[in-house]
Amino acid sequence: MNPALHAARLGLARGWIEFKHSLLNPQDLGFTIFSSVALVVVLYFQRDATVPGTTISLASVTLPSMLGMLAAFNGLIGAVGLISVEREDGTLLRAKALPQGMIGYLVGRIVLLAAQAAGSLVIVLVPGLFLVPELTRGGPGGWVIMIGILALALLATLPLGAVIGSLANSPTTAAGFSMLTIGGLIAISGIFYPFSALAGWLQVVGQVFPLYWLGLGMRSAFLPDSAAALEIGGSWRPVETVLVLLAWTAAGLLLAPPILRRMARREAGSLMQERRDRAMQRIS
């Protein structure tokens, strides 16, 4: 069997096993449930409100945007956290020592993060559709668009998360930088309120990054065509959405492999021990 293919198969199995283990980890499971329930609570309080100047439910606009945000959050923050922690604890060094170990490692991380993202989305989507039942009227086409946009969300954010996680000096630095970044992007991407209500220059900045386009694509999957009047230009802009997300995907896939290879080549037991010592100092 081809060594790379064998390593990828092992990575698939490892990622699925680690996902099942994460379901038994109270800390991981508790954070996922708490954050997902918090988003459902937001929908609950928005269910009777409408977008100003329209009869469209505010919750029906927010729920699709939330799903796009969750996919990006799990892809970016999840990859940052895993790569930075496993770089510090020696997991990456052990993967590097195995034949085709980095391939298996990366495949495993992708499977784990994709499965965790799917779990978070289901926890929000199922009760969300009970609170906003009108979103179930989109038909099969809407669900196909949703799956496509969510796949692009992971493709556009996972590689960038891996880059940030491999460049950071410590998990704390990586987590702080990524949380600050994605928090700022959520604020200017029209996730919890109409994007058109933002200042013009914020709209320009927001459209540079994938989070706005993920929200737009998800809204186009669930909302009726009449709701496009709330968007810039009165259109869902499907071509622009796909092109921007593909551009971010291409950028991430071009940057991530050489950066990860360089980081893996520089890994050594002495460097790992230094990071462990710094981690112990932070704890003590």
Rank of each mutant, 00 (worst) to 15 (best):
Val242Gln: 03
Ala247Trp: 03
Leu271Gly: 13
Ser270Arg: 12
Glu267Asp: 10
Ala250Pro: 00
Arg237Ile: 02
Arg265Asn: 12
Pro238Phe: 01
Ala251Ser: 11
Gly234Ala: 14
Leu255Lys: 11
Val242His: 03
Leu246Glu: 02
Pro238Val: 03
Ala251Thr: 13
Glu240Leu: 15
Trp236Pro: 03
Glu267Ala: 15
Arg266Pro: 05
Thr241Asn: 11
Ser235Gly: 08
Leu243Gln: 12
Ala268Gly: 10
Leu246Pro: 02
Leu255Thr: 01
Glu240Pro: 08
Ala256Thr: 12
Leu254Thr: 05
Arg237Cys: 02
Gly252Tyr: 02
Ile259Val: 11
Thr241Lys: 08
Trp236Asp: 02
Leu253Cys: 10
Pro257Phe: 07
Trp248Pro: 12
Ala250Gly: 13
Trp248Thr: 04
Leu260Cys: 00
Leu253Thr: 04
Arg266Phe: 05
Leu271Cys: 06
Leu255Phe: 09
Met263Cys: 14
Thr249Phe: 04
Ser270Asp: 07
Leu271Asp: 01
Val239Ala: 15
Leu253Met: 13
Met263Ser: 15
Ala256Leu: 10
Ile259Arg: 10
Pro258Leu: 04
Leu255Trp: 00
Leu243Ile: 08
Gly234Cys: 12
Leu255Val: 02
Arg265Ile: 09
Arg266Val: 04
Ser235His: 12
Gly252Pro: 05
Ala268Ser: 14
Arg237Phe: 01
Val242Ser: 09
Ser270Asn: 09
Leu243Cys: 05
Met263His: 15
Leu246Arg: 03
Ala264Ile: 15
Val244Gly: 09
Leu243Lys: 08
Ala247Cys: 10
Pro238Leu: 12
Pro257Arg: 04
Val239His: 03
Ala256Met: 14
Trp236Met: 08
Pro257Val: 07
Leu245Cys: 10
Arg262Asn: 11
Ala251Asp: 07
Trp236Leu: 09
Val239Leu: 15
Ala264Trp: 01
Trp236Cys: 08
Met263Trp: 09
Val239Glu: 14
Arg262Phe: 03
Pro257Leu: 03
Ile259Pro: 00
Ser270Lys: 11
Arg261Pro: 00
Arg265Thr: 10
Thr249Ile: 07
Ala256Ile: 11
Gly252Ser: 07
Val242Asn: 02
Ala268Arg: 09
Ala256His: 08
Leu243Met: 13
Ala256Lys: 10
Ile259Leu: 12
Arg266Ile: 04
Leu255His: 01
Ala256Arg: 09
Ser235Tyr: 05
Met263Leu: 13
Pro257His: 08
Thr249Ala: 13
Glu267Gln: 15
Arg262Gln: 05
Leu260Met: 04
Leu253Ile: 02
Leu243Arg: 06
Thr241Gln: 11
Val239Cys: 03
Trp248Ala: 07
Gly234Ser: 13
Ala247Thr: 07
Trp248Met: 07
Val239Asp: 14
Arg237Met: 12
Ala247Leu: 06
Leu245Glu: 11
Pro257Gly: 04
Ala268Leu: 06
Ser235Cys: 09
Leu255Met: 07
Trp236Gln: 06
Thr241His: 05
Pro258Trp: 06
Ala264Asn: 01
Ala247Met: 06
Ala264Phe: 04
Thr249Asp: 01
Arg237Ser: 13
Leu246Ile: 10
Arg261Ile: 12
Gly234Arg: 03
Leu271Glu: 01
Leu246Phe: 08
Leu253Gly: 04
Ala250Lys: 01
Ser235Trp: 08
Leu254Trp: 11
Leu245Pro: 03
Gly252Phe: 09
Met263Lys: 14
